[in-house]
Design a protein around this nucleic acid. Structure first.
Lengths: 201, 201
DNA sequence: GAGAACACGTAACAGCGTTACGCCGTCCGA
DNA sequence: TCGGACGGCGTAACGCTGTTACGTGTTCTC
């Protein structure tokens, strides 16, 4: 009898989400190396075995982070598309992409860069990941006529994705040749324009 | 008195290179998670403390792998540039870039993707990394007139680097949308063409 | 030949992911 | 109302990790 009667019925998977948000918080603040089972359990207010009951192990926890990341990332991308002019959704999408990655650098590297050794996304997880791609394809289709893009929209979307991801991940790795953030931003925006120009007739 | 007199004088840093190549071999065959101090020492035929005498710790070992990787990578890029037609060095460079990354996927992710948690490249290491970029800039300068590229060569080289890296790292992460290697290769080559076209007048 | 410097191994430390085991509250059939 | 099965959860332990204190043997210098 630990909980008062008035709230005897708790939200069922409350501890599960507490564990997940604790893991995300540690990942964001202290990096992938600090996200241990013990630190996550401690931050979530349960024992290490609690993490096992809900996620099966560290791989399951990382998988949840991976999927959660792509869902959150996908929603951000989607919202950016809706907020952009109907015939020009790509610039806003690219900005939102970069902003999300810079705000969640470690999670981005878990999602795209194998930041947790020995974790390989399951096919289910990869399906969630690639479904995010659909928004990019949709935005590309909307822009084809306006920007005079030619070719397969899927191939063009993949080209844009690869280019944007390249800029962002070089920036996260500290290997862009920029001197300050202003130059980085300017270069990124020019890069997106160049990516689009490469697909024009 | 363990070694015979005839070879009492060994090559001084022989064990150092033995450790480094053992680490690279484990990294390539079994991934970053399997590259432990004990497994490296065992494969190199020494004790764990031997790794500490030569590299100071795991961070030093990873740094050596990082630098070794960029030197090897840089030589490959450089050789590809020399083997290409003098006025068309970029296509061969891109092919060599991708081939090296696909042959050394884990090391590539250590170099570009923070595959070892808690390892952050020193400024010296990053200098070695960015000096590889010089070859790309040089190749870009050679191609500017032939391909009718306009703008700052450094900015164009950065654009090409980001794009090529984007294609390669999505491929390594298993997140390209290709069905087989033939399609992947075709898409990559078309992508390089698009990257160049985006920088034309 | 004495002594410092160095490479190197043994053994231990704390911390890691994981799991066997036991406790305790809840539910279900008799 | 009771007895037993069940499930969530913590304690404690397993083997593994990176790291380091310490002792030993070799080598180089004066």
């Amino acid at each position: 009898m630990t909980a008062p009667l008035s709230r005897a019925i708790d939200v069922p998977t409350d501890t599960r989400s507490a564990i997940l948000s604790a893991a995300l918080s540690i990942l964001q603040k202290h990096g992938a190396g600090a996200m241990t089972m013990r630190s996550v359990a401690s931050a979530a207010g349960c024992s290490t075995t609690g993490v096992y009951t809900y996620f099966g192990g560290k791989a399951g926890l990382v998988e949840a982070i991976f999927i959660d990341g792509f869902q959150n990332f996908g929603e951000t991308i989607h919202a950016a598309r809706r907020a952009s002019p109907a015939d020009q959704p790509l610039a806003g999408l690219a900005e939102a992409y970069r902003a999300w990655a810079l705000s969640n650098p470690t999670q981005y590297m878990v999602m795209f860069g194998r930041a947790v050794p020995d974790y390989v996304p399951s096919t289910d997880a990869r399906d969630v990941a690639t479904s995010t791609f659909d928004d990019l394809v949709a935005s590309t289709r909307l822009t084809m006529a306006t920007l005079d893009l030619v070719g397969d929209p899927i191939e063009i979307a993949h080209h844009l994705w690869a280019g944007i991801h390249g800029y962002v991940s070089l920036e996260l790795a500290g290997m862009d040749m920029a001197n300050d953030d202003a130059e980085r931003t300017k270069r990124f925006r020019l890069g997106v324009v160049k990516l689009l120009r490469g697909c024009m007739r």
